[in-house]
């Protein structure tokens, strides 16, 4: 799976991705950029909550929870982890 381009919402627990695109628009886009969701940054999927939403992500030394509506519009390239 390494090298595959997927939305963060499809990445399994423990996987790491390099962000390659953000399709969220408007003020929320700005907010995500400010939180570190910028192209080239590495993000790790910490854990999905029991109901699958929201999911905790780790990036730039901070943990951030995103809802599916947001995470499915952020794309990244898998670089490891998650062994699936």
């Amino acid at each position: 799976m390494a090298g595959a381009l997927i939305p963060l919402s499809k990445a399994v627990n423990g996987s790491k991705l390099v962000i390659s695109g953000i399709e969220v628009q408007g003020v929320l886009r700005r907010r995500l950029l400010d939180l570190g969701f910028v192209v080239g940054n590495t993000v790790e999927v910490l854990r999905r909550s029991p109901l699958g939403d929201p999911t905790a992500f780790r990036l730039s030394n901070t943990t951030i929870a995103l809802r599916r509506e947001e995470s499915e519009l952020i794309y990244g390239t898998l670089i490891g982890g998650g062994n699936e």
Partner: peptide, 9 residues
């Protein structure tokens, strides 16, 4: 100092 990347924004 422990989180400069985020803070430099």
């Amino acid at each position: 100092a422990t989180s400069l990347e985020r803070n430099l924004n």
